[in-house]
Design a protein around this nucleic acid. Structure first.
Lengths: 219, 219
DNA sequence: ATAAAAATTTAGGTTTGTCTAAAAATAAAT
DNA sequence: ATTTATTTTTAGACAAACCTAAATTTTTAT
């Protein structure tokens, strides 16, 4: 089935707001999408007719299984494009969101699969959010970004946010890899860079960008 | 000034149809855009109000200086994206047009300038059409139509006159593409068809219609 | 030069996605 | 348990971009 840009934005918003919550309210959607509640009601009727959501008047809304699939497809596109913008076009990770909001509506599936391959099948976007695969499978975020871990707490690297050669080169140079044990010694507020102590030995400094694509679990 | 997708498509269509012609007719736009003439008239009024075109009822339409600048901006985006798709994502040159039709409407100028740089400031798209620079400057096409080249003179295909899937399918079938070297062996007066020898090997026959949309440069 | 044909515009509708204002349903508070 | 407040829906409008049918203008052909 095909969807308009407006429909896609509603579907995505329901997905995001549903996180944790059981159902999503009209007002929440209205706030998220910057439209009036009355407009939301109209669209919910349309999406219900398309079986993308389950919705009863006054009772809130949920995505159907189909709706979840659609949402994950849009999120996949959004995050792959964000990765592209940061990794290939040298955008700052704080300036990619708006552009990706537009790019996520480009319809070609072939495009997105080829982009995915070109980028090296990245698993996480520049903000550390997991990128759904082409079947809509998404890694549950029980991992913690290195950039948000407590100081002086031993952790182990469990995932890296992409397979790009540039990232791998940098990791190799810093002596970091899957399973490396380390702890954060200090965070510099100026640029978000971190000082790490690896296995109680070497001390290395990593940038905010690098820290955000390193996922760790406590030991 | 900002433009809707529909407006951008009209502006681009006027630009393309104006090639050679002095003014563009409502019917020509209607055919190009697959809309009814009445719809074209509506949009022309809107674009006139925005000073993008000059237009008098029944007298046809021209782009204003401003309109030309907008058109070249859209064409720049279109062709850069086509280049990206072929050069980076390994699309076939015959399958990029539709996707680029969508991508050309992404609004960020920063995006397009960074993309341009990432691609190495390409001067021609995969079909051989010149890519306008960020100031709207475009290399003039001093190419010759295949149908008017001298017999037995080696030439190279540098551009094709349209991106229709029908044309691209035919070219693929005949073994012709960008950069193919060939020479015209014979012209048949009866139907204007040409016999070509490709790279001193295969001999293929092409119709007058096909020969008129293939552009070549002497070797 | 006038009639026929073709091109273009006008007039009046439709759909999509939005809005405002008013009504109805639900939730909260006394 | 009512009243009050909040949330949500309904009703009626509007702009964008399209449509059909009819009217008008321009072009072509007799």
């Amino acid at each position: 089935m095909k969807f308009t840009m407006a429909e896609e934005n509603y579907i995505k918003a329901v997905y995001h707001l549903q996180h944790g919550q059981d159902v999503v309210s009209t007002n929440a959607l209205s706030a998220e999408l910057q439209t009036k509640p009355a407009s939301v009601t109209d669209m919910l009727k349309k999406l219900k007719a398309k079986k993308i959501i389950s919705y009863e008047p006054y009772r809130g809304v949920k995505l159907s299984a189909e709706g979840r699939k659609v949402a994950l497809g849009i999120i996949r596109k959004h995050r792959l494009w964000e990765f592209f913008l940061v990794d290939k076009l040298q955008f700052g990770w704080d300036e990619v969101h708006e552009v990706a909001e537009e790019l996520e509506h480009i319809s070609s599936n072939k495009l997105i699969d080829k982009l995915d391959e070109f980028l090296g099948h990245p698993k996480f976007d520049p903000h550390g959010d997991p990128i759904p695969d082409s079947k809509g499978k998404i890694i549950a975020q029980l991992q913690e970004q290195l950039s948000t871990t407590q100081l002086h707490t031993p952790v182990e690297i469990t995932a890296v946010g992409s397979q790009s050669t540039e990232l791998l080169e940098l990791l190799k140079h810093k002596g970091l890899q899957m399973g490396t044990r380390l702890e954060v010694k200090k965070v510099f507020d100026f640029d978000g860079s971190l000082e790490l102590r690896i296995k109680n030995q070497q001390v290395v400094t990593v940038s905010r960008e690098l820290a955000s694509v390193l996922f760790v679990k406590p030991l």
